[in-house]
């Protein structure tokens, strides 16, 4: 395994939710997650909507102040005092290419903003050259530089967002569902671009998505989240071939396979009920209310991630 770049240890992100007049209870959006990402490696993070994927990504970048836990980047603990400097090394690509670009700014200013903030360019000429270079990397024409974001299509806008993230030459980018707002045909283009950029620039990604096929395509390792917890983490092929956690099993059984014979033969595992509200988490294992194998032990104690060989970690009592 390659050298560790990002290490997330027991990251917790609780939001206070008002119930009644003065009483607040914590909403555990991200509850005690730990993982590592190697240099130039991609970790996929999947889970259904509302399970805390996006919050996890934002907490790692300290866009929210984490309730607990720590993030270590390249051997350095991220704190409030060094975060401005660290933002030069870790960036984010946002989900919605329509709302994540300022409608008042030209493409040149959007991509140039990180350069201005960190004072990376000595003069206007240098800034301009760097912006054009970035635009070329993401496949935009130089003459687009003076246009506004609303003049572009979704795919092009996402390219602008990626160029902005690349401007400071980061080593790590959190991709928060970067393709889920795009057309399927554009999705493929953008994902391939992410891969090319990784080969060329050696950046590491935390690739958040809810589409297992996409994540499997781009990631080296995949983590599966459920109700703010990581329930399974393994190499992409291992997870796809031998899922252990019942939640992963059911997720994988829902992935469409373009072969009618296989589709007819396999059994779809349909989960019953809805995801419990994160305000009323089930005792013990968060998944037990919808799990086929749930036992009494599951209700009493929360399972922790244990290694089942070859870096395949699962949090489950039964399997």
């Amino acid at each position: 395994m390659s050298e560790t770049l990002v290490e997330v240890r027991n990251l917790k992100q609780y939001f206070p939710v008002k119930v009644g007049f003065v009483k607040t209870i914590p909403l555990k959006a991200v509850d005690d997650i730990s993982f590592t990402i190697g240099k130039g490696e991609t970790l996929g993070l999947v889970g259904e909507s509302g399970c805390g994927k996006t919050t996890a990504g934002r907490s790692i970048l300290r866009l929210y102040k984490p309730t607990g836990g720590e993030v270590i980047f390249d051997g350095e603990l991220i704190t409030d005092s060094n975060i401005t400097r660290m933002r030069k090394k870790m960036q984010m690509v946002f989900q919605d290419p329509y709302s994540s670009l300022d409608p008042r700014m030209t493409v040149e200013d959007i991509i140039g903003e990180p350069l201005d903030v960190h004072k990376l360019c000595a003069n206007r000429k240098e800034r301009r050259e760097r912006i054009l270079e970035l635009m070329e990397i993401v496949g935009l024409n130089a003459e687009h530089a003076t246009r506004y974001a609303h003049e572009f299509s979704g795919g092009q806008r996402q390219r602008i967002g990626i160029a902005r993230a690349l401007a400071v030459r980061p080593e790590f980018i959190v991709c928060d569902e970067p393709v889920s707002a795009l057309d399927v045909s554009i999705q493929a283009q953008v994902i391939n671009m992410f891969e090319e950029l990784q080969d060329k620039l050696g950046v590491a990604y935390l690739f958040i998505a809810h589409d297992l096929l996409v994540v499997h395509h781009i990631s080296k390792r995949i983590a599966v989240m459920y109700l703010g917890k990581i329930v399974e983490i393994a190499d992409a092929d291992e997870l796809n071939g031998h899922p252990i956690h019942p939640y992963t099993e059911s997720l994988l059984s829902a992935v469409p396979i373009p072969d009618p014979d296989v589709t007819r033969a396999r059994k779809r595992i349909i989960l019953e009920g809805d995801v419990p509200s994160p305000l009323k988490r089930p005792s013990g294992c968060p998944f037990r209310t919808r799990c086929r194998y749930a036992t009494e032990q599951c209700a009493e104690e929360c399972p922790t991630l244990t290694d089942r060989g070859g870096g395949h970690e699962v949090a489950c009592w039964v399997k």
Binding site: I83, Q91, P114, V117, H118, R164
Partner: peptide, 14 residues
């Protein structure tokens, strides 16, 4: 509440 404000913060803007 717009995401581009969050984006500016993630860049490190004051």
């Amino acid at each position: 509440e717009n995401e581009y404000i969050l984006a500016a913060r993630s860049i490190g803007a004051k």
